[in-house]
Design a protein around this nucleic acid. Structure first.
Length: 601
RNA sequence: GGGGGCGUGGUGUAGCGGCCUAACAUACUGCCCUGUCAAGGCAGAGAUCGCGGGUUCAAAUCCCGUCGUCCCCGCCA
């Protein structure tokens, strides 16, 4: 070893010890006769003192040392002279008096600061990702991610789960996203697909009798990127046999609580056990199947009251079956008239961008004797207003927003209004975790474009037993045995009880527009497996990137992925993707045909 | 596929028609300095303002296109 201690561990009790440290120059302070070097490694920073008089060998090297030079320092630990301790440093009580310094490697001037937390343009960070990752904040994120994964592994291992690897080179998987294809030289013209998840394989492991499986699995989906989505991402993939929905939810909930409480961050659970919302409740109240419950502002149906008001839009909509929903924004009405008009105009624009035709509002005065402000107030009788306020639990100074349209439009608008208002009103505390379960999803969602039902999760999700008859009569009403774990507005895990019966599986295919022929071709091995004693089973997959992001308090998952891709799927450092060599393509029997720019070529 | 933001010395920002021969901080280079820790002092170097075109007497600044990146919708659980 080139070091006997790391740069974060030396304390007063080490005083007098001969030590060797190695690391990077975080900062160098040249005082002339004495040079201070803050030596940094993954564990911390230790001050090295180099005195010209007592360390003639080390002094010139220390003088020439620059940021990010790699040094090995041999010296003696000493308690710092009185008055020179640095309470900012964990090692601030001591310093290492250098006897010998070896320059292990020099460094060019880095393109950005390693020793200073400053927002740097992301292109630059990605171009020099190895330097970006050297920054302490990134090292914290990456190590935190490791701790999360380690915790989950240990937790599941202790409960009889077996970690099993599944292939990356596989076949199209039924998650509904676009596949990444990998051409294969030995069979020109044929392609592997990278797994969108190990879904089929983990079910087959249940058929194989492993009963409790997990894997830290890389998944691949060729869809557009977002802050929370990368083309390759990591899931904690799990599957269990002989269990019911409740068993998995309990296990995962216990695991998440233990993780939050055991992984050593300052994150607080807002509540436990985790509340459960049905999909319908989530949509009705929050307009989203992954609502952020760190704040309220739930939508409340006021169709009955609004329909009786004198406001024509509400009357017509309610008469034609379109709901009127109201949201209470605490305190947002207690501003000047000018400000109120500006705020509500902005919110109305937002609602319009979500497809709504408008946004009505009432502002409750802070003085209860004043009139309610807002253009629709006059259409409501005093009694109607009081009824509204009571239902919304409105207080003086609140702003009430009213939306009325088709359900989907109202949901959309409620969702975007809630999220925007929460941000504006500073209601988003990243240290608070609001975990909730969303259950009772519809098994299918109608795909208007292709005029068919689409599985809302995937084709192996079992219907809720009591909804089986609906498959024949009204498939849209059938609920799936699906459960999603949501935290702070992010879906962090999703799973279901699976179909383990061939007949049931074959019943699903035609409903989702799969011909039997195509289904057998793609999934024949699954159907066949179901005939050999498949146990009832189910599972869940948790997004490790999103969890790590939440635990790190990071704004996107790139901050917790060592080498992420940009929004266009590029790796700026390595310049991937890149054209293939003609010889490689020839071996694969592939010709690249790139469309010339359609018109303006 | 669509909408929006951003792109100025190495880095982070300012400048948003003429006072820009582009400012500030920091980093960088040299010299001075024996208790600093965002060290300090003095001196210095460093930018065709992403790229291309246009408008104008005059463009970092306005317009169009393009490239890159980020956010959002679609897409994706």
């Amino acid at each position: 070893m080139l070091k006997t201690h790391n740069c974060g561990e030396l304390r007063v009790e080490h005083a007098g010890q001969q030590v060797t440290l190695a690391g990077w120059v975080n900062r160098q302070r040249d005082q002339g006769g004495v040079v201070f070097i803050d030596l940094r490694d993954r564990w911390g920073i230790t001050q090295v003192v180099v005195d010209e008089a007592t360390s003639p060998q080390a002094h010139p090297i220390a003088r020439d040392a620059r940021s990010e030079y790699v040094l090995q320092v041999q010296g003696v630990v000493r308690v710092r002279p009185a008055g020179t301790a640095n309470p900012e440093l964990e090692t601030g009580e001591i310093e290492v008096v250098a006897q010998n310094i070896t320059l292990l490697n020099a460094s060019r001037t880095p393109p950005f600061y390693i020793n200073k937390e400053e927002r740097i343009e992301e292109v630059r960070r990605m171009q020099y990702r190895y330097l970006d990752l050297r920054r302490p904040s990134m090292q914290y994120n990456i190590v935190l991610r490791h701790r999360i994964i380690k915790f989950l592994r240990d937790y599941l291992d202790a409960r009889g789960f077996v970690e099993i690897e599944t292939p990356i080179l596989f076949k199209t998987t039924p998650e509904g996203a676009r596949d990444f294809l990998v051409p294969y030289r030995l069979q020109p013209g044929k392609f592997y697909a990278l797994p969108q998840s190990p879904q089929q394989l983990k079910q087959l492991l249940m058929v194989a009798g492993y009963e409790r499986y997990f894997q830290i699995a890389r998944c691949f989906r060729d869809e557009d990127l977002r802050g929370e989505r990368q083309p390759e991402f990591t899931q904690l993939d799990m599957e269990m046999s002989f269990i019911e929905r409740e068993d998995i939810m309990q296990l995962v909930e216990g695991m998440m609580i233990a993780l939050v409480e055991g992984v050593g961050t300052n994150k607080q659970l807002l509540w436990k056990p985790f509340p459960r919302l049905t999909y319908t409740e989530a949509m009705e109240k929050y307009g989203s199947d992954k609502p952020d419950l760190r704040y309220g502002m739930a939508a409340v149906d006021v169709s009955d009251i609004a329909g009786k008001s004198g406001f024509g839009v509400f009357q017509t909509n309610v008469a034609e079956g379109r709901p009127v929903k109201a949201m209470r924004v605490p305190g947002a009405g207690a501003v000047s008239g000018t400000q109120l008009r500006k705020d509500t105009a902005e919110l109305e624009d937002l609602a319009r961008s979500a497809g709504a035709k408008g946004l009505a509002w009432m502002a409750l005065p802070t003085d209860e004797n004043d009139e309610v402000k807002g253009p629709i107030g006059k259409f409501f009788t005093v009694e109607q207003k009081l009824e509204l306020f009571e239902r919304l639990e409105a207080r003086p100074g609140d702003l009430l927003l009213f939306l009325s349209d088709r359900c989907e439009v109202v949901y959309n608008a409620v969702d975007i209004l809630r999220r925007t208002l929460a941000d504006k009103l500073n209601l988003l505390d990243p240290n608070q975790f609001a975990f909730i379960w969303v259950i009772d999803f519809p098994l299918f969602l109608w795909d208007e474009e292709n005029k068919r039902w689409d599985p809302s999760q995937h084709m192996f999700t079992a219907p809720m037993p009591e909804d089986l008859p609906l498959l024949d009569t009204d498939p849209g009403k059938a609920r799936g045995s699906q459960y999603d774990l949501v935290c702070n507005g992010y879906e962090v895990a999703g799973g279901s009880i699976r179909i383990h019966d061939r007949a049931m599986q074959e019943k699903i295919f035609p409903l989702i527009g799969q011909t039997m022929e195509h289904a057998r071709e793609q999934f024949g091995h699954m159907l066949e497996a179901f005939e050999y004693g498949t146990p009832p089973h189910g599972g869940i997959a948790a997004g490790i990137d999103r969890l790590a992001m939440l635990f790190a308090g990071a704004p996107n998952i790139r901050e917790v992925i060592a080498f992420p891709k940009t929004q266009t799927g590029s790796d700026i450092m390595a310049h991937a993707p890149s054209p293939a060599e003609p010889g490689q393509l020839e071996e694969l029997g592939i010709a690249v045909v790139i469309e010339e720019d359609k018109e303006d070529a």
